[in-house]
Amino acid sequence: MSFFEFVLQNRGDVWFRTVEHLVLVGISTGAAIAIGVPLGIGISRSARLRAPVLGVANVFQTIPSLALFGFLIPVPFVGGIGARTAIVALVLYALLPIIRNTYAGIVGVDPAVREAARGMGMTDAELLRLVELPLAVPVMLAGIRVATVIGVGIATIAAAIGAGGLGVFIFQGVALVDHAVILAGAVPAALLALMLDGGLHLVERKLDWRAR
């Protein structure tokens, strides 16, 4: 059976797995933003926190993804078989680019602009809200984009611990040595990555003050 025939015959299933995949990536990237942006702001304020936070986020990045999924299974509360464990692992992977780019975006603000803002009597909170964050947005979004695209790829492995998603087809296909089935997972995953990348790139351009 060719790839096209397989997808056509199983379009309901392919669609379901694609949505499942999107949900895995969406929830985990959302959670990583909620955790990573405040951490990025935190390390732009405290040099003491910088090394440990970036260090830990870096370590997560270096653990092979299948191993990380495996390590998490026996962990109480976050572990077990299924989507919850997968989402925790995906969050850990997404953190580094988000933290690092938030930090880089803020630190990269022209010191003269920061000095002018402080000279006008901005408090630290006003400086962050009115100057540093708006100017850092393009860099932060670039980090979110990288995290999302990486997440789409890594989420295919989540099927190994029963989290569903497009990886289900890939693992099935590998087991059956059937390229059509592997492609039914790989092609939608690749398209998803390209679409999210393009979409977030548009958002990035839209929010960039330089484009106005």
Binding site: A112, V113, A116, A117, G119, M120, G121, L130, V131, L135
Partner: peptide, 21 residues
């Protein structure tokens, strides 16, 4: 209070001083 002080002083610096966004 440095914030109060700075708000009672106008500060003009070379062009970079405007907030670009």
């Amino acid at each position: 209070d440095p914030v109060r002080l700075r708000r009672s002083i106008g500060y003009v610096i070379q062009e970079v001083g405007l907030l670009p966004h």
